[in-house]
């Protein structure tokens, strides 16, 4: 029997949408993550290569900001680009997206690991803040992955930024507007299949999920489970 999202206190804002799409859940970081949408893993992996939408709400993420953000995070062992809107992969699989000189977003990998995130979150306190302040990104932003060859065309329907692979390199970050919502878009793939992270207002998760599925329909896009995404990476 599959895990039910409401069996956990941490719940994705999208869990009803995922359930109605036939998601099969498994536990990840104390929450139920949609791992697949049926038994045919191969078909789901193919879907992810064409156009897939995956809820990553259960994956670890955090943020830090402040005038001393960079020094504080570096003291935790982080490496970071000096330029904004660039992602720097860490040795442990964590990715750090520098959103501004004084703000960074830390994302775990697609297997739910983010040792640097745990370390930084544990190390931070108001007493030791010293000009660097924690941002509850796991609660502020829902997190989706969009994968597949049709993603740039899909984004062209809902976002004004040129996200074609030749214009938006891997590890690029766009802080922009998607379907009239503020959003952070990150080019995440390192291989042949285009893949993007999309983070936006957690309270608007259901709205954007439905808007994306509607926009994806002409390309045959569907939800895919985390397992299919892991297969790509």
């Amino acid at each position: 029997m599959t895990l039910a999202p409401k069996d956990r206190t941490r719940r994705s804002f999208l869990y009803r949408e995922l359930e109605s799409a036939g998601a099969v859940f498994d536990e990840l970081n104390g929450a139920a993550a949609a791992m697949s949408y049926g038994a045919d893993a191969e078909a789901e992996a193919a879907q992810a290569r064409s156009l897939g939408l995956c809820d990553l709400s259960a994956l670890p993420r955090t943020g830090f900001k402040g005038w001393n953000m960079s020094a504080w995070l570096k003291a935790q062992g982080a490496e970071m680009s000096e330029a904004s809107n660039i992602v720097t992969p860490q040795a442990d699989g964590t990715r750090i997206a520098r959103l501004a000189p004084g703000e960074a977003l830390l994302l775990g990998n697609y297997r739910g690991h983010g040792p640097l995130i745990e370390k930084a979150d544990s190390a931070w306190s108001m007493q030791e803040a010293d000009g660097c302040f924690q941002v509850p990104r796991a609660e502020t932003n829902f997190w989706l992955a969009l994968s597949g060859s049709h993603v740039p065309a899909l984004f062209a329907k809902i976002c004004a930024v040129d996200l074609r692979p030749e214009s938006f390199a891997t590890h690029s970050v766009a802080q922009t507007n998607v379907a009239r919502l503020n959003a952070i878009i990150i080019r995440a793939d390192t291989g042949e299949v285009p893949q993007f992270d999309l983070l936006s207002d957690i309270a608007s998760a259901v709205y954007l999920w439905r808007a994306l599925l509607d926009a994806m329909a002409e390309f045959g896009g569907k939800p895919v489970g985390l397992a299919a995404l892991q297969e790509l990476n």
Partner: peptide, 14 residues
């Protein structure tokens, strides 16, 4: 065009 009207739901909306 397509009507994009963002709506925010609280955690308890449903």
């Amino acid at each position: 065009g397509r009507s994009f009207e963002p709506v925010r739901y609280t955690a308890m909306h449903f």
